[in-house]
């Protein structure tokens, strides 16, 4: 996860010790303040047909027997922690932001339906799958129960939130 966070920060090659320390310290903070939650719903291919818009999602789901939609968030407390640090220590804020981005991905990995792994998660905004699908996917899984809201611009709030479409039992 630290490696991911460093990548988000644009750190290439070996980082200096001070940066590494800051990143691992911020990762601890993010883990401490985050209140991660996820919610998942399965669809038959038939029921999911309505949510297929564009070619890329079609390819993503090709050969799948079903679909799971996952919504996950680190919670609003992470946004607040990043916001608070912007007032007092921007370096820390930027690193917290990167750590949180890394953490939500790891959290999704760990909360895949049926514990599956190695399956690509596909989200609105990838390829030609429109961002406008965001509110529909959220509604489908009742993501408001875990506090994910969406702006008119389709931006998710809390900002460290993810929706993902996951193929199930591919080519079984």
């Amino acid at each position: 996860m630290l490696k991911e966070a460093l990548r988000y920060l644009g750190v290439q090659g070996d980082a200096d010790e001070k940066t590494l320390r800051l990143v691992s310290d911020c990762m601890e903070t993010v883990k401490k303040v985050a209140v991660p939650k996820s919610i998942c719903r399965r669809f038959s291919m038939h029921d999911f047909a309505d949510y297929i818009v564009g070619n890329d999602i079609k390819n993503h789901l090709a050969g799948a027997a079903g679909v799971a939609v996952l919504a996950a968030t680190l919670g609003i407390s992470v946004d607040r922690e990043i916001g608070k640090n912007q007032a007092v220590d921007m370096a820390r804020a930027a690193v917290l932001d990167a750590c949180a981005a890394a953490l939500i991905e790891t959290y999704c990995d760990e909360n895949m339906p049926d514990g599956i792994s190695g399956v690509y998660r596909f989200s609105p905004g990838y390829g030609d799958y429109p961002l406008a699908m965001q509110p529909r996917l959220l509604k489908a899984v009742r993501a408001e129960k875990i506090g994910i809201t969406v702006l008119e611009s389709h931006m998710l709030l809390p900002t460290k939130s993810v929706t993902a479409v996951i193929p199930l039992d591919k080519n079984r």
Partner: peptide, 14 residues
Amino acid sequence: QGTVFLPQLLSSAE
């Protein structure tokens, strides 16, 4: 030049 990274730049700015 890629020898200083964002967190360091921001620490300097702070």
